[in-house]
Nucleic acid binder design. Structure first.
Lengths: 148, 148
DNA sequence: TTGAGTGCAAACGTTTTGCATTGTG
DNA sequence: CACAATGCAAAACGTTTGCACTCAA
């Protein structure tokens, strides 16, 4: 669990400040347990803190993600993308957070393991999406994605 | 590859019609190769077909997905969700298309295989998201999710 | 000829941005 | 006291919807 002192240090080293909203939002994200969205955090905190703005929550979450304190549960869908589902070999994606490049890959063993997990739960799979996030070779060479 | 006659039959059996925009959009999705979004399809087709409307593309893509002709490449994110990334056990999701239920699971072997694929490509993983879509035990019992 | 499908524009819900104000370090 | 961060309102963005018109069967 992240201590407030650690948080303060992380911010300070980048010339950033530990403010009341940031403290509250991080606290809520930690305690709330499961995957929270900006709106639910906003609503929860707004009750006890009537001046909080939505934009602040969005800005804080983005910051936390950049600092590696928080992660997005699902990959960010900017625009919905579709592909023909008939007779096409499946593939997954590695998305580079540095340059946006998308590396495609496929691995049958992963698919088989998914199938195993699904069977165990009586779940019938019709499709899946695996998105790996991180930094590509080129960005790592350029020094991006070092501190995580 | 889906033949036009097949497409026509699929539509007709549901009282739907094979229209010029639908034919063009499906064609583009097939030929275009990679994951297309509504906007890119719209722009591409707009050039040769000046009366096409954006809404038509969105409606067609939704229809194709319902018919099983097309699949969404990424899971649909309504609101971005975040979780604390420090000292929390990772888990993935199985989402039921019948009732919306989310089944959580985790499998280290899958994670290791991802790592292997990443290493092979010089990619450094900072996170990932795996969403399996299909039908849960309960919905299957109720007869949902039978047709392919 | 009928009603499914379209194009347009306006509405929607989530996220971002501009800017004057606040408050941390 | 400087300037990072905020709250607000307006803009931006992808998507959906209402409606009169069109066109496939």
């Amino acid at each position: 669990m992240l201590k407030e002192q650690q948080f303060f240090t992380m911010l300070k080293s980048r010339g950033l400040r530990l403010t009341r909203p940031r403290r509250l939002i991080l606290e809520h994200l930690s305690d709330g347990g499961t995957h929270a969205c900006a709106e639910s955090i906003y609503e929860a905190l707004k009750r006890g803190n009537s001046t909080l703005g939505r934009a602040t929550v969005f800005r804080a979450l983005k910051l936390f993600a950049q600092l590696g304190i928080a992660d997005e549960t699902q990959p960010t869908t900017v625009r919905r993308r579709f592909e023909v589902a008939v007779g096409k070999p499946h593939h997954d994606h590695m998305t580079c957070l540095g340059c946006g490049a998308v590396v495609e890959f496929s691995n049958c063993a992963i698919e088989r393991l998914q199938e195993t997990e699904a069977k165990r739960r009586g779940f019938r799979i019709t499709g899946h999406c695996l998105e790996v996030r991180g930094y590509c070779r080129r960005c790592l060479k350029l020094g991006r994605g070092r501190g995580h």
